[in-house]
Design a binder for these strands. Structure first.
Length: 882
RNA sequence: GCCGGGAUGGCGGAACUGGUAGACGCAGCGGACUCAAAAUCCGCCGGUGGCGACACCAUGAGAGUUCGAUUCUCUCUCCCGGCACCA
């Protein structure tokens, strides 16, 4: 054994040992409880970043821990390989996305392997592989057959210069990222998946996911957004035709306060008004410019124009004017809303701005209504006033009565409304799963027959930013109609990459099956016992995966109701974002490693410059590490300098998993120092520990301190008390997944070991030797999930039995924790004033007496009446004085 | 704007069910070893006052509940994530 820690050699040897023994190959084994541990697979952006290291280290810790607890573990890895960055890289480097992606996968795979994760690489998959995405296409066709896929128009960002559809990410301040042209909204036909058909179940089943964080379930519930209300119509006549404008409201109790209505720019009424009023037309045009993002729509100034069209209030017969409002969403509800400025904040602001009437129709006791300024209580539930026959009714009764009256008129009914919209999966892009549809002039949209799957994506295209290259590639799109055999055109849109990631966890169970999407092996491994990934996926990816699983269940393909039993949402790894704005609004991002932050003498920040040219760069604050913002930190330098175990230990130690983390490598030295110190300690005491290992090799208890040998020496008893006390905490922390304090626990154990060992530097007494042996065995097992190479190597070097990865997780010896006396905290009026030692089984009265006898307590209670003494057994005594 | 989360020393963080605030580290300071440096080891290390014993203040800000609040409640500020075409 080398006297000094050599991470490169340790890791090389441990990894080759694991590789040659196939240590992490997962096989179905009905005899053992299974544990499927999955980390969200990475997008192959080029290099791993710290977020990946954090994510996969957490997964690895859990996988190795559960294996020691006796589980048959599966931890697979794959590549979320389709997506936009590959096309961006293609534009920049004139290289096909496929070549770029495969090169990135090869590099990142080596990085993952160098980190020593216990992955079953035989199950590796990449979503850009036709053997994978053919099943996207296959399931798409099954969903199409069942009406779960349909076609309708959707709104996209259109760059008029490049003649291409832009992702939201590619729109910066309303302009195309490459051209700087003002982006327009455009409606195009797209395929949708009917996730709304599962809205009720997706919401309901959240209650049966106790292993998910409450906040994620809350976010999903809010996203699905079930609301109860009334859908009703305002009759009107237009061009001599009698029609009805439908709206949905959750506040039907305020219906008598309607003073106007508002419709979205895309609403038929707005279009009708635009045809005869140029002002309305201009406003509708204005609304069609700008972003399609909800966040932008929500923050823009609320504006509108009157259409000159009037509808009839269904209950009062009042004439109500219709406005076009830029804040009304065509995609939500009916694209039209009734406006009650008295009791809706948005409507109030709108009415104030345009001088429209505001009417109070809800009263809350003790509150005074005024049209001067909005007050939050205006939106509260109360009692109807100035509402004719509904006066005096509370919310529930008013809604019931109004819904009944509207129903009698044939104009409305109660309705459940969802915020959730169907999932648009069409992308006008090249690097994705081709949608298996053929457009025939005679037969319409014809599904590609199953026998013709997969529709293979050509891998040699180089996008140039001006639209989808597939649409310019006759060898791809030219085809025959499967129905009539006449020339036809293949669909050139591809699928949203969320499709790929919606079921990869199922494919990991049976990645080698070329005949079926999934097979019976999913019954063994599914559901995923522990899923780990960034909190940024709390809604979309996780909701789509839940939906997809339910669809597959209904198709009889899998048996599970929900894909992920337990979810750990990892906090983001953040770093500062630096950029420069070039001509035409183009933005270039610079990696923080290449930027120097300038400080003044007082340490105040003056600015930042790019090291390469010394010119200033702007800061865009801190944000999640990403390819697009170029603020990732490559872990490679860290691994090369310190080794994988240090990188793993550091990322685990520096923060609890769920917390977001601003990247800083301060402290890496400390992590490395600890591992060196542990190695040196092991090397120093190796002869004694080896000898003890030999002596105890046949012991059933393994490495536990023998129960028949009482630890009489105080320093031995102290060591055992400390080790087992820390172990108890570590076990608790492991279970609640607070791994940073498990790492701390390992450090505390080494500190205790060193302290105990120096107490008797000469010949080791048997008692101490056995206690050190036991403590070291516990320490290595606790540390193994975090720093497996080092722990594995020391385990062998010190002669501990068997393979560490299959050693049983250590348990606390309660006998080691016992003491005769305990120390209690003594407070006066809740303030710490001293300590007192009492027998461990002391009763309340004697504790009270002991507390009152403490000098500091006497000083602070002198001349005052003691009202009572609060005794918390085992913890404290608090003397309360007047 | 809406939904979800967070804020504790110079820094990362700890404090289990409301019970010793600052575990474990980093950085810093002082010392030992050394010709010297690195490595290693020992000590100190929230703030203010005091030689000291000790006292007071302190968990983003402000209020409240409690014998006692980092922990529970309310209001506010700032930061992070999501908002349906980044993944």
């Amino acid at each position: 054994m080398e006297p000094q820690y050599n991470p490169a050699r340790t890791e090389r040897e441990a990894q080759s040992h694991w590789r040659s023994t196939g240590a992490f190959r997962a096989r179905e084994d009905a005899a053992k409880p299974k544990y499927y541990c999955l980390s969200m697979f990475p997008y192959p952006s080029g290099k791993l970043h710290m977020g990946h290291v954090r994510n996969y280290t957490i997964g690895d810790v859990l996988t190795r821990y559960h294996r020691m607890r006796g589980c048959n573990v599966l931890q697979p890895m794959g590549w979320d390989a389709f997506g936009l960055p590959a096309e961006n890289a293609a534009i920049a480097n004139a290289q096909p996305p496929a070549a770029w992606t495969y090169a990135n996968i090869a590099y990142m795979k080596r990085q993952l392997q160098s980190l020593g994760f216990a992955l079953d690489w035989e199950r590796e998959l990449a979503t850009c592989d036709p053997r994978y995405y053919r099943w996207n296409q296959w399931l798409f066709l099954r969903m199409l057959e069942r009406g779960l896929v349909y076609k309708k128009t959707g709104v996209v960002n259109w760059d008029p210069v490049d003649q291409t559809v832009l992702a939201n990410e590619q729109v910066i301040d309303g302009r195309g990222w490459r051209t700087g042209a003002l982006v327009e909204k455009r409606e195009i036909p797209m395929y949708y998946m009917r996730i709304t058909a599962y809205a009720d179940e997706l919401l309901d089943a959240l209650q049966r996911l106790p292993g998910w964080p409450e906040r994620v379930k809350l976010m999903q519930a809010n996203w699905i957004g079930k609301s109860h209300g009334v859908n009703f119509g305002f009759p009107y006549a237009l061009d001599g035709e009698r029609r009805v404008m439908r709206v949905f409201t959750t506040r039907a109790d305020t219906i008598m306060g309607v003073t106007f209505c508002a419709v979205a720019a895309e609403h038929p009424l707005a279009e009708a008004a635009a045809r005869r009023d140029p002002q309305v037309a201009a406003f509708v045009e204005e609304c069609k410019r700008g972003s399609v993002m909800e966040a932008d729509l929500a923050t823009i100034e609320k504006k509108g124009v009157p259409t000159g069209i009037f509808v009839t209030h269904p209950l009062t017969q009042e004439r109500i004017e219709v406005w076009v409002g830029n804040y009304v969403l065509i995609g939500y509800g009916e694209g039209a809303v009734m406006a009650v400025p008295g009791h809706d904040e948005r409507d109030f602001a709108f009415a104030k701005k345009y001088g429209l009437p505001i009417r109070q129709v809800i009263e809350v006791p003790g509150k005074r209504f005024s049209t001067d300024a909005w007050q939050p209580w205006y939106a509260d539930y109360g009692v109807c006033v100035r509402s004719g026959k509904y006066d005096g009714l509370d919310y529930e009764r008013a809604v019931d009565a109004i819904a009944a009256d509207l129903a009698r008129l044939g104009l409305g009914e109660k309705q459940v409304q969802w915020r959730l919209r169907d999932w648009g999966i069409s992308r006008q892009r090249y690097w994705g799963t081709p949608i298996p549809i053929i457009h025939c002039d005679a037969c319409g949209d014809v599904p590609v027959p199953d026998d013709d799957l997969p529709v293979v994506l050509p891998e040699d295209c180089v996008p140039d930013g001006s639209g989808n290259p597939l649409a310019k590639l006759p060898s791809f799109y030219a085809c025959q109609c499967p129905k009539c055999g006449r020339p036809a055109r293949r669909e050139t849109d591809t699928m949203d990459t969320f499709v790929d990631s919606s079921w990869y966890y199922l494919r990991f169970c049976c990645p080698d099956n070329d005949a079926a999407m999934v097979d019976e092996r999913t019954a063994y491994w599914m559901p995923v016992d522990q899923y780990i990934g960034g909190i940024e996926h709390a809604i979309l990816h996780l909701l789509y995966s839940r939906f997809w699983t339910k669809v597959m269940r209904d198709l009889g393909l899998v048996a599970v109701e929900e894909p992920f039993t337990n979810l750990l949402t990892q906090g983001m790894v953040l770093n500062e974002i630096f950029y420069r704005k070039g001509e035409g609004g183009r933005i270039a991002y610079y990696n923080p490693a290449d930027v120097e932050v300038k400080l003044d003498d007082a340490g105040k920040r003056l600015g930042a410059v790019l090291r390469a040219d010394g010119r200033a760069v702007e800061s865009d604050g801190i944000g999640t590490m990403s390819k697009s913002k170029n603020n990732g930190v490559d872990p490679q330098a860290l691994i090369e300098q310190y080794g994988a175990d240090t990188a793993r230990f550091f990322i685990i130690f520096t923060s609890p998993p769920e917390q977001s983390l601003e990247w800083s490598d301060a402290g890496v030295d400390g992590a490395h120092r600890f591992l060196r110190r542990l190695w040196a300690f092991a090397a120093q005491w190796r002869p004694a520990l080896l000898e003890t290992s030999k002596m105890r090799a046949g012991s059933v208890a393994g490495h536990a301190y023998p129960g028949d040998l009482a630890a009489r020496a105080p320093h031995v008893a102290k060591l055992r008390r400390e080790i087992h006390g820390v172990l108890g905490q570590a076990n608790y922390d492991m279970q609640r997944m607070q791994f940073n304090t498990v790492a701390s626990a390992a450090m505390k154990m080494l500190n205790a070991l060193q302290e105990a060992a120096v107490t008797q530097p000469g010949a080791l007494a048997d008692e101490l030797r056995l206690a050190l042996h036991e403590a070291m065995s516990i320490l290595l097992r606790v540390l193994y999930p975090i720093t497996p190479h080092l722990a594995h190597t020391l385990w062998h070097e010190l002669g501990f039995a068997g393979e560490l990865m299959d050693a049983a997780w250590p348990e606390v010896d309660q006998a080691a924790l016992e003491t005769d006396e305990i120390e209690l905290v003594v407070q006066v009026n809740g303030k710490l004033r001293g300590h007192v030692r009492v027998p461990k089984d002391a009763d309340r009265a004697s504790i009270e007496q002991a507390a009152l006898a403490v000098d500091a307590v006497r000083k602070h209670t002198e001349g005052k009446a003691v009202k009572k003494v609060i005794v918390v057994p085992g913890k404290l005594a608090n003397v309360v004085v007047a």
